[in-house]
Amino acid sequence: MSMSDLNHLMQSTGLWRASSIDSQYLEACPTGFELLDRELPGSGWPASGITELLQKQAGIGELRILTPALAHLSHSQTRWILFVSPPYIPYAPALAQAGIDLGRVLICQPKSAKDYLWVIENALSSQSCSAVIAWPAGILEKQIRRLQVAAKTGNCLGVLFRPDSVSVNASPAELRIRLRTHEHSKDNSAMVAKVIKRFGRWESSDILLHFDDELHRPMPDFSELLLQPYQARDFEAIKHTRTIQPAEHPPTAYEYQ
């Protein structure tokens, strides 16, 4: 086949080429982390599709990497952000701190496993959610495929938190990212993400994500205070005292030193 034949084929038949995935044509929601955005097709979380976040344990900042995107979605769209059976209560003051509009947040707690998938699928395809976040325990590949289709229909960002052990299995999700703690960051101001599935490109190398939030504000170390027991006040006595005596002012940290 000569070069001109090839060119002809390219131009006339609309042949699909992997290199032609133009990241600009994929609708995406910026993650808020520049380094991560650079690695993702469309420079952000896929705005319609399933994203899998794989982690060994909870509490490593896995929800925090979503909050900038959720804050963006809650202000740019009037649709819901739905948490389906979160393992604990998403804490309203912390969500507000992250800039998420609480008026858009919805929590749903289905009781049975059947209802659980039903809710996720219907919410994804309903077109009335901008993001659906779920923690499915034992979800099957074919079920994720259905959710992926539903997310496409509903133009919705679907996020599934799954254990790290499933990273070796194939998944129809559009984007899969492994998350782990950063060994050298003592205070969890950083996390390591590794994209293991994305459109048009291979696995990424480790990406270091720095959290620039209040959690890592330097604070004086008061931990030696721990060694002195707290002198409990008699709460009952205070409750029944009309006039508060000066001595009964709440103790301050100063008094303990």
């Binding site: 979160p86 998403p90 209040e214 504000r217």
Partner: peptide, 10 residues
């Protein structure tokens, strides 16, 4: 807004 740091899960 709560001025102090709060966790996302309670």
């Amino acid at each position: 807004l709560e001025p102090n740091v709060r966790p996302l899960f309670l």
